[in-house]
């Protein structure tokens, strides 16, 4: 990969990490509201919504921090890909079932509502960015390029 390409991947990696740290930090502040947003998807039982709400934000923060500092980026980007697949499937099923809900992606409880379609498009962009980081963004790959 040329110098320009390496810089571009680094920028994408740090930007992706920042988005995930930001998203996780907002959710950590209000787990109850996030659990309510998860419950609105009608995919999990009541108690499981709280368990997922308790763990997901910290997973987002952990992956985001690893991406920002560039350590274990392959594992972090693989997890971000996995998380995005879960988000995309959940949003697609919400659209298919005609649920008019807030995606619960960032700010919880109140504020501007983000529709499932908007969130789906945003997650597809993040998914593509995570794929790029996974394939091209690991330090050893950069060194061997």
């Amino acid at each position: 990969m040329n110098l320009m390409g390496r810089h571009m991947i680094s920028i994408i990696r740090v930007a992706l990490g920042t988005v995930f740290v930001y998203a996780g930090a907002l959710k950590v502040n209000d787990i109850v509201a996030f659990a309510g947003n998860i419950a609105a998807y009608q995919l999990l039982p009541y108690g499981a919504s709280y368990m997922v709400a308790a763990v997901f934000p910290w997973l987002e923060i952990a992956c985001g921090l690893l991406l920002i500092i560039g350590w274990r980026t392959r594992a972090a980007s693989a997890l971000v890909i996995l998380l995005n697949v879960i988000f995309i499937v959940a949003l697609a099923t919400a659209i298919a079932r005609g649920l008019d809900i807030d995606c619960g992606c960032f700010k919880q409880g109140g504020g501007d509502k983000t529709s499932a379609w908007q969130a789906l498009l945003r997650d597809l962009v993040l998914f593509a960015a995570a794929i790029a980081v996974y394939l091209k963004g690991t330090p050893e790959k950069q060194r061997s390029a």
Binding site: N37, A40, Y41, Q42, Y46, G110
Partner: peptide, 12 residues
């Protein structure tokens, strides 16, 4: 004053 009610599905 700004919080919105949380949506809930049938099972919940």
């Amino acid at each position: 004053t700004t919080a919105a009610p949380l949506p809930l599905g049938l099972e919940q």
